[in-house]
Design a protein around this nucleic acid. Sequence first.
DNA 1: ATTAAAATTTAGACAAATCTAAAAATTTGT
DNA 2: ACAAATTTTTAGATTTGTCTAAATTTTAAT
Lengths: 218, 218
Amino acid sequence: MTRAEENYIKTIFHLGGNHSGLISTNAIAEQMETKPSSVTDMAKKLAEKNLLNYVRYQGVSLTDLGTKTALSIIRKHRLWEVFLVKKLDFTWDEVHEVAEQLEHIKSEKLIDKIDELLDFPKYDPHGDPIPTKNGEFQERDKQLLSELNSGEHGICVGVKDTSTAFLKFLDKNQIALGDEITVLEKEAFDDSLRIEIADKQLQISNQIAINLYVKVEI
Amino acid sequence: MTRAEENYIKTIFHLGGNHSGLISTNAIAEQMETKPSSVTDMAKKLAEKNLLNYVRYQGVSLTDLGTKTALSIIRKHRLWEVFLVKKLDFTWDEVHEVAEQLEHIKSEKLIDKIDELLDFPKYDPHGDPIPTKNGEFQERDKQLLSELNSGEHGICVGVKDTSTAFLKFLDKNQIALGDEITVLEKEAFDDSLRIEIADKQLQISNQIAINLYVKVEI
DNA sequence: ATTAAAATTTAGACAAATCTAAAAATTTGT
DNA sequence: ACAAATTTTTAGATTTGTCTAAATTTTAAT
């Protein structure tokens, strides 16, 4: 597989192309910052290779082979991210760009050894789950912080937005994965939250709360 | 720089393109298993970018910029090789193929951190020197085992042939970098050698001796 | 010094991945 | 339901890196 093909497969997976519905040419083009006509060309090519189901004028979905391929690429991406943070002291906002390159390295032995070196991590630095070698993919039970009500609390387990700006904001405010967050008050007017984290109180906007995942203790 | 461009620059460096003479189109084509006409095209392109001096019908040599670029790629290649052997338990015959891919990853921070993780190694698993970040490149004082006479001895510091076949042969015969080798007898008829290594005696052909580098103690 | 052989370059073609502009199909609004 | 708007596809062009075949230049031989 070429790098371009792998990038299409990965993007389609992230857009939900394995589930019921079809993903539109436009949606893919927008996500990949390319033109719909380019997507059409590639869709035909990948359908030919049995990686996609492609229905003209309707969109695409991943075949089983396509899904397996996507999971393999995502596995590599996330393992490399963990490697960069744990072994090379990269910060969580620096890893994406480099992992985008490393995910295309072709060597099964390499990625299995990296997995072993890292002691088989289950989540990447942003809290996203790492598929196993067999393509098993366990989505963590989580919800957005914005869905919590006053008095409820949870453990911060991931971010939705992985932009540098957002990640640096979290660092600055000392919000990290694993921290316990309690919602003290929810302001009805703008949906901002007053939260307690590590014995400190903090006021955060809804924009922050809809990009932080928490796991609620039962 | 594209991957193809980087591969040309690296190959030209290995063919000695920084030194006095010009490297022929044919030599490059043969080394890269491509056609001379393709090399001509690329030579023009790289000359345009000030990486090569290109004289029509004569050949190419690297400019200072080209040499600097080549050293940067070789540095990455060799550091990744060390990483694979030291951190991921690859054998020295397995590393080349993967390092050929990893050397093209674009991130200065990444390779500097790998360098640091490995504690700034000076030589790769085949005994080849690793250029510094500034492109300093210290060739080790070494000679071929075949150049030694009876009774002389040296430390094994590198291999000329890095093929799997040769490296596996060395492993099988327990010849490793750092071992002391003494030439007991040189057979004039076929230039084969009887050597002593780690208190064991071994008969090796000239073909082996011309591919093993040793450093002679003064 | 010519000529034959070898090496090198040019010209034209191709595949991959992309684009623009025009055509076709689908969706939406009334 | 049907015209308008939107989406998608097609057709044709472009770039990168490659190839083959023909032409050119250099080298080697007598």
